[in-house]
Design a protein around this nucleic acid. Sequence first.
DNA 1: TAATTCGCTAGACCGA
DNA 2: TCGGTCTAGCGAA
Length: 800
Amino acid sequence: MRAILVDVDYVTKGERARIRLMLKKKKMFRMFDDSFEPYFYLMPKGDESETAEKLKGLEVEERGRKARITKVEKVQKELRGMPVTALKITCSHPWDVAAIREKVKEFGEPHEHRIPFARRYMIDRGLSPFTWVEFEKNGRMASNVRSAGDAPFNLKTLSFDIETYNPQGMPREKKDPVIMISYACEGGDGGVITHRPTERKFEKLVVDEKAALEEFVRVVKRTDAELLFGYNSASFDLPYLKARAEANGVKLALGRDGSDFKATRRGMYNGARIIGRLHVDLYPVVRFLGIIGTLKIYDFTLRNAYSEIMGKEKIKVDKLAIWKMWDDGEERKKLADYSMSDAQATLELGRAVLPMEVELSKIVRAPLLDVCGISTGQLVELLLTARSHSDNVIVPNRPGEEEVRRREMSFLKGAYVKMPKPGIYEDIAVFDFRGLYPSIICSHNIDPFTINCGCCAKEEAHVSPTGDYFCKKKQGLIPKVLGELVAKRGEMKREMKTLDRAGDEYRMLDARQQAFKILANSFYGMLGYARSRWYSLQAGESVTAFGRRYIQDTAKKAEDEGYEVLYIDTDSLFLLMKGGKREDVLEFMKKVNAGLPGNMELELEGFYKRGVFVAKKVAKDEDAKGAKKKYAMIDGEGNIKIRGFELVRRDWSDIAKKTQRSVLEAILKDGSKEKAVRIVKETVDRLRAGEVPLEELVIHTQLKKSIGSYEIKSPELSAAKKAVAGGMKYDVGSMVGYVITRSGKTISDKARVLEMATDYDAGYYIDHQVLPSVLKILKELGYDEDDLKLPGTQSSLGEF
DNA sequence: TAATTCGCTAGACCGA
DNA sequence: TCGGTCTAGCGAA
């Protein structure tokens, strides 16, 4: 029989664990496989055979049951690059692994004892979620389950969202009812379940809250939802629905077995599993996109995420007024529209972000729900764990706390950044090394266990600029897996070029190549991360040392050809063309590439017509220095590329950012300093006249620690403290949006969160926000501080 | 309770 | 009032 594997978990039948497969042909169905047993490896201290004898049949009392070793086998494996003989210890039940592992520690070091049973099954059988599997069927039992190729992703999807009555601000789950439950399906079916009329055609009017809860359960059943999307649903919607179901004496039977959901906790996020369906809370997924830099938003609300990812705006309501809207016949109609739009936005968002998670789940061979929201480091760990198995390698253990502290004492030297000369330049060519660190790792076989291998003579191996060398005879696991990722991604990108950008095939490939990119870029970090199983300071330093060498050698070659090297950062190189032809520059690139090892390539990033580099702030008596990581350029089509300037930072006010952008555009596009100066003057006038709305003056800064644990005073902290005193909530991780007002002495005193601010300090915004951000740029046009500030009147631009 | 280093800049604070 | 040092946050790669 053939079906698509959707998810794997296990159930207990008698004394044993049974793998439960969630599968799909036309409909979802379940099968069981009882041919798989939990095990782990032990690296014995003493003689393997003697230890094996001692362990056979060993029993431990564990919470009233007997945990038993059912089998001990000697196996030939590889660990940390060395061949080893290990004992494979099979246990009676997955629950017993922990107790037995503790017990056998006296005989050696356990390995791979923390791999969840269902995932162990997928790894050992070579199965991935969302691919075809084949098996022999005998009733509900499956045997010889094996992988049978890539499958299309096609699940019946339902998104949902709830609105709650909230006269006290935060709804209280024991008291405040759910007033609307909205849902949306693929294909257009959707509605808002409500028990007060809204005159909307999508309304599903029921008699009371209890009936609404029952209706929602019916919707889930009727639509036969295989995939459920929510936003914050694991932390809010589902627990709230459950609490309300209890209060109303009904059952929230969302699962196929009539159960509600099982709350889980993975790292930083809550999860909720619904039996027989996949429930994906999109909030952690969106956070993940924020962390890896795909998304740049300050506030991870559904509204923000939706507008950033989909490029569309969602209806807005005042959250605190929801209860009032519910009580008002006219306003309630708007609330229904809002509720409907929440479910629809959640559905669209899910469709947009899920393909990437699905691909990650396939690559690392882990259930989708385990992959949504985990960090890139954990993803790499999952991938390397799966690939270790197919390479007959035992996964190295995580370091203990003491080892972590020891590792944290040493530091890894990073990339090279060249100091640019401040100024405005014409005709710049920018090159970069595509995937510099991944390609270095692959080209030089850099791995914690290929370093100074001993089987190669140093001169014949890959010698790193640090003096270490890497084996040339045997490929390491990291270069091997990474090389495959890079190669496959290259194929995908080539194939994408032949496809219609609007088509499904293109979209799927794009999600796939994104997943590969995320993984590939995380490998280097794992070498230098103190808690990593594959930590190797020497290997990490070799990567960066090679990186510095390649970029600097390339710069040298460019100079030898007569180009001026304007700027270098890690893997990118900025050349001044100085009247040179584009063909010549491309020829130079070809020459460089001819001298690079196989996996490495210098690419043209682009030609730019004009670029600005500014000076960094220095002490008065110091010479002017160019600021690194701060520049702006414009290409022939008028596209502007801006890096590092205040205007790309969230901890600057919009008024300063907008002004800085306009100034940069005036210079880059029009080459007009008069225009630039006029823009500044207008902004200053508007600020002075008090015409600027407070929203444009908000500065956003995150509180990375709890309010009490700061050593210093700062505007964001001080604003947050005042807000807390006023009844608002600010915790670790809160984003504080504050305005500098006129009341107070120091800047911190003057800071108030936007909600509490009624005026603003024009002087602060002129002298501390607008002028500093534009002055650095105007200086490159020949205006210096004194030109811009008349004596006595610091903020004056009157002379222009 | 989960990848890295390099670099800029602020505001507070302290002493000359 | 200044210049230096420190903590902290954010961005580039």
